[in-house]
Design a protein around this nucleic acid. Sequence first.
RNA 1: UCCUCGAUAGCUCAAUGGUAGAGCAACCGGCUGUUAACCGGUAGGUUACAGGUUCGAGCCCUGUUCGAGGAGCCA
Length: 463
Amino acid sequence: MHATPAPIVSIEDLSRYVGQVVTLRGWLYNKTGKGKLAFLQVRDGTGICQCVVFRPSVGDEMFAIADKLPQESSLTVTGAVKADARAPGVPGGYELDVQSLQVIQRAEDYPIGPKEHGTEFLMDHRHLWIRSSRQWAVLRVRATVMRAIRAWLDDHGFIEVSTPILTPSAAEGTTNLFEVDYFGDKAYLAQTGQLYNEANIFAFNRVYCFGPTFRAEKSKTRRHLTEFWMVEPEIAFCDLEQLLEIEEQFVSHIVQTCLRENADELRVLGRDVSRLQGIAPPFPRMTYDDAVATLQDIHTRLKAGETVEAHGGVPLQGIEDPDLLKIEWGMDFGSPHETALTQLYDKPVFVVGFPSAVKAFYMEPYPGRPEVCKSADLLAPEGYGEIIGGSERISSGELLEQRIQEHGLPMSAYKWYVELRKYGSVPHSGFGLGVERTVAWICGIEHVREASPFPRLLNRLYP
RNA sequence: UCCUCGAUAGCUCAAUGGUAGAGCAACCGGCUGUUAACCGGUAGGUUACAGGUUCGAGCCCUGUUCGAGGAGCCA
């Protein structure tokens, strides 16, 4: 009679198999040992489990194999699941009392050790770095964010309608677009799906597009990628006030879903989840006018050598040079301005009503105050910057044509877009949320490059 | 494009202008509860590249390349 083979299980499910003999398939993440004991940390993609190899239990030969196995070797390991508070791992608390193990491939000279490494080295080895527990955790959170985005929109009457990535020349400056050859013509990688979204709402009402967007900007900061993912909902019969309510519900749902489903990942990242638990509607709203006045006040006080208190009474952080906060009405915010403003609140903050001159041509002006438009940026807390840009769109065909002319844009390229206002125009609004910045904020990581599996940056196209 | 900083062992970093070193990783040995284990040992170098100053340069000077952080840019 043959013994029943041990079931192959995932590390995330180990708690259901305490006392049973199971098989894990995975890779050796790290190991340590003490004489006749070898502690193998095995990861299988769903978690990390400590597998304890005891020489008298497995015999000298198998023990020697386990004891000499290099990091990232692939293996299957069979043993009894034991609950033990000492067991490290993700989720941890359970370990395997090894009865046998089989090496699938010995990995020689794995370059990423359990020590510190520099950014360039890690980015050159991004294809391997994603195996490390912190990167693994971030990308698991990213997957949750993307799932939460779709789930909330799908549950609130939106349908996903894809917009093109290859687009004709449309905007005035093509310097920030990636140009591609399109059978002898020039085409550009999309930096937004919004204009197409506006066509789609007249067919489907609430829509969203969700995919990669491309910006050929020579930005070298912790907040910029040249390829990033953006979700852009667009809503018919919706004004700016209604839009902000949708945005705060949407963002809160994303954050709360991550807290609920990624507690282990956020623990691996050492994230202070108390900074996220209170993320719920309503978010504070601040007009652009007030924001400028606030920034001018902060600038004056910092120049006078005063300490400016941020939320929670702690001093304002990260302002190297107070003069970077200089601003006058009419100027767009730079990142130092956003950094200062967001520290005043413990939630994301809306800045509403930017000058029309610094925003896109299609934003609806305020009645009686045409120099200001119905636009709102949502700035994430803790200095993570703008995660949403949104606005109510111009619904009048005449005004839209006027704006296109004022911006020196080619009317022919926008013929179809203006035509949308001819056949049943309605008030409508929409916004775009950047996935990587949102993930970086939720995870509490320094740089958006870690929020993308294979990030593309100014000087980074490999691997 | 601009500003600041950096490049030394596979990795992370030290080294008054005077013999290039440590920790980790690798390899050998020891240990029955390790958590980035610990202890002992071995091996590991065109100091990014090119030129210059000097009796002598990892160190000082000039240029180049690459990288990091920030600014600008980011309808």
